[in-house]
């Protein structure tokens, strides 16, 4: 925990420096004796600095964690599926505007099922297709919520016209 607190404090201090730099570049329109648009960001900067420095000092001054290896081992075994899930999510969000909801969601759903330890291919195919179709019909036609149709459909529309 001590190591994590030090990391948190250092990261927040760095982010606060960036925030303060950007705040100093903001326009300073204000009437005399009244707080302008930079007032509140400066208050935040001050509070972030005070709190993150306090956390850093407190973490450094406390005793070292006696079981760091156990925690590291536990964390590293969880990193792989977590990273994979995040990569799958990013791919999905990149492909969603291009391919549209149905085409992008079917492989995403299937990949997520695999990440949740489902190995039966037939189950994966049937569930990913049926759940995606169900969500599409429910939101698009049941609740009239617009879902992305994909750039390729726009392209076909342009080409056909």
């Amino acid at each position: 925990m001590r190591r994590k607190n030090i990391i948190a404090a250092v990261v927040i201090i760095l982010l606060t420096i960036i925030y303060a730099t950007m705040t100093s570049q903001l326009p300073t329109r204000s009437l005399p004796d009244t707080p302008g648009p930079t007032f509140f960001p400066w208050v935040n900067t001050f509070l972030l600095l005070v709190l993150s420095v306090s956390l850093l000092i407190k973490s450094i001054s406390t005793n070292k964690n006696i079981e760091p290896n156990k925690e590291n081992k536990k964390t590293s075994s969880k990193t792989k599926p977590t990273t994979l899930a995040f990569i799958v999510f990013i791919f999905y969000l990149v492909l969603l505007p291009i391919l549209g909801f149905i085409i992008a969601t079917i492989p995403f759903f299937a990949m997520m099922m695999v990440l949740f330890s489902e190995k039966r291919v037939l189950h994966i195919v049937v569930a990913s297709v049926s759940f995606t179709t169900f969500f599409y019909i429910l939101f698009r036609h049941g609740f009239n919520i617009f879902l992305p149709i994909g750039e390729w459909q726009n392209l076909i529309a342009i080409l056909s016209s």
């Binding site: 969601t105 995403f108 759903f109 997520m112």
Partner: peptide
Amino acid sequence: YLLMPSVAVLCVVGSFA
């Protein structure tokens, strides 16, 4: 394995809608 992918899709739909 059915529940969580559904939640993921619904999160995307919710933030998009």
